[in-house]
């Protein structure tokens, strides 16, 4: 008996139980299913409240952004903390190189793309495309209210632009633009911005992450616009953390924690 037989048995049993459960599901795309409309005779689904009230409460046309950063802001805050913790975990796992290993691993670094004809096309293309990618990332963060986008997506796009620098030339080039000190600072700063938007209403005498009271601070007309601007601030915090941590993960993984050489 090889272990693959038992693996197949376990998988087939699990699959059969799940497929049996699927036959009791509401039909695919049914607008009256419990998830979409609530239980018959019970309270309606929370999604109905979000779809109907999100615009009145926050003036944000994209319901997903409104729910992500306002109604479920507490959830999103700790997701950001999880990403930060993952970055710290990678730091703890890989970024402890002994002195003798460091001397062995570091290859002779190429100074720039100019001397290397094999990489000149890739390098030039990256150099042209990176500013465009970064501007698009900033647009995605700032335009998360009326269109798909927001802190997570924009942060990932910004991280991708820095990874592109590292792939197009080398890791030293990317680290000279976005050094280890900078990305660790920015990652912490993102979490602090998010938590700060939570604590500010508490200072003004309301609940944690209750942005509506910030209208005195932002001088907006009504609590809705205060929520609108607070969502943007929160998204910026998320974007900073995601950008820094994803670039940190790439930099550590591609150089085995030495931050030298790279791919």
């Amino acid at each position: 008996m090889n272990p693959k037989f038992f693996a197949s048995l376990a998988v087939v049993i699990t699959g059969f139980v799940l497929l049996y459960g699927v036959s009791d599901f509401p039909g695919f795309g049914d607008p009256r299913s419990p998830a979409n409309a609530g239980v018959e005779g019970g309270s309606p689904s929370a999604s109905l409240h979000y779809i109907n009230e999100a615009y009145h409460d926050t003036k944000v046309p994209n319901i997903v952004t409104a729910v992500l950063a306002d109604y479920r802001g507490y959830d999103t805050m700790f997701e950001t903390v999880v990403i930060f913790a993952a970055g710290m975990a990678i730091f703890a796992i890989l970024r402890c190189v002994r002195k003798d290993e460091e001397a062995v691993v570091a290859p002779p670094a190429k100074s720039s793309i100019d001397g290397d004809h094999n990489r000149i096309i890739v390098g030039m293309t990256c150099r042209i495309i990176i500013p465009v990618v970064q501007i698009f990332g900033l647009y995605v963060i700032a335009h998360g209210h009326p269109s798909p986008g927001g802190g997570f997506q924009g942060g990932v796009i910004l991280a991708a632009s820095f990874i592109l620098v590292a792939l197009g030339s080398n890791l030293e080039d990317a680290l000279s633009r976005f050094s280890e000190k900078n990305y660790l600072t920015l990652a912490s700063l993102g979490v602090i911005i998010y938590a700060g938007f939570g604590v500010l209403p508490q200072v003004l005498g309301r609940n944690f992450l209750d942005y509506g009271v910030l209208q005195k601070l932002f001088l907006t007309d009504g609590p809705e616009m205060a929520r609108y601007h607070s969502i943007l601030g929160v998204e910026i915090g998320v974007a900073l953390t995601v950008m820094s941590i994803l670039f940190a993960i790439f930099a550590n993984l591609s150089s085995r924690g030495t931050l030298k050489g790279g791919l």
């Binding site: 997903v64 995605v140 798909p148 986008g149 997570f152 997506q153 990932v156 796009i157 991708a160 994803l246």
Partner: peptide, 14 residues
Amino acid sequence: VDVAFTEATVGAGI
């Protein structure tokens, strides 16, 4: 669309 956007950047990219 938001989930698709995230997956396009994360799943196919990073």
